[in-house]
């Protein structure tokens, strides 16, 4: 029974509010960060529930950077330290079965989808989805052209509208 690890890199919004100071007050802040989501299953499709997870950072691959366990669906989430670019490694182990996956993490936030070589029925797959795809670089040339034309048409139309005078 071979483990399969799916990795999803996404943008997380850690929701929080900042409360006013009251007796026994609690202050909650929030920040937005990118996280890597692990989805660990056996090759049968069965989730690796409550499996041991060990995360190693690129700067010190000998020492666990974080440890934890997957949830009932074999999921585990962590936010890598973006100051450490390189290969982050995640080992998921359970009852003598284990797999380790190397996840290249750029120091800068990336807008990319990455797919490992086409997985076979027994292949671990890596998938990274966009964290920040909402920028002009994500548009195709056709989309950019149509958008520019629409803006230009808007200016011309507005100018003609005011230039036509009163009937």
């Amino acid at each position: 029974m071979k483990p399969r690890l799916m990795i999803l890199l996404g943008l997380l919004s850690v929701l929080g509010v900042q409360s006013r100071a009251i007796a026994h007050g609690v202050e909650i802040n929030y920040q937005t960060t990118e996280a890597i989501a692990i989805n660990a299953t056996y090759d049968t499709g069965e989730p690796m529930a409550e499996a041991q997870v060990i995360v190693y950072a690129p700067d010190d691959p000998s020492t666990p950077w974080m440890t934890g366990t997957t949830d009932e669906q074999g999921r585990f989430l962590f936010a890598p330290d973006r100051a450490q670019s390189g290969n982050w490694e995640v080992a998921v182990r359970q009852a003598g079965h284990g797999e380790i996956l190397s996840i290249p993490v750029d120091g800068e936030a990336a807008s990319e989808t990455e797919q490992a070589p086409a997985p076979s029925s027994e292949t671990a797959a890596v998938e990274q989805t966009a964290g920040r795809a909402n920028n002009l670089d994500a548009l195709s040339p056709l989309q950019k052209g149509v958008m520019g034309g629409a803006v230009l048409w808007g200016f011309i139309g507005t100018a003609l509208f005011f230039a036509r005078g009163k009937k």
Binding site: G86, N87, T113, M147, A150, V151
Partner: peptide
């Protein structure tokens, strides 16, 4: 119009990009 078009673009799957050697930990 530009906003709608950009929204459509944002729904597109970002282009795949193979990891480069420089991304690996030297």
């Amino acid at each position: 119009a530009p906003a709608l078009l950009q929204s459509c673009g944002g729904n597109n799957a970002p282009q795949a990009e193979a990891p480069t050697a420089e991304q690996a930990n030297p």
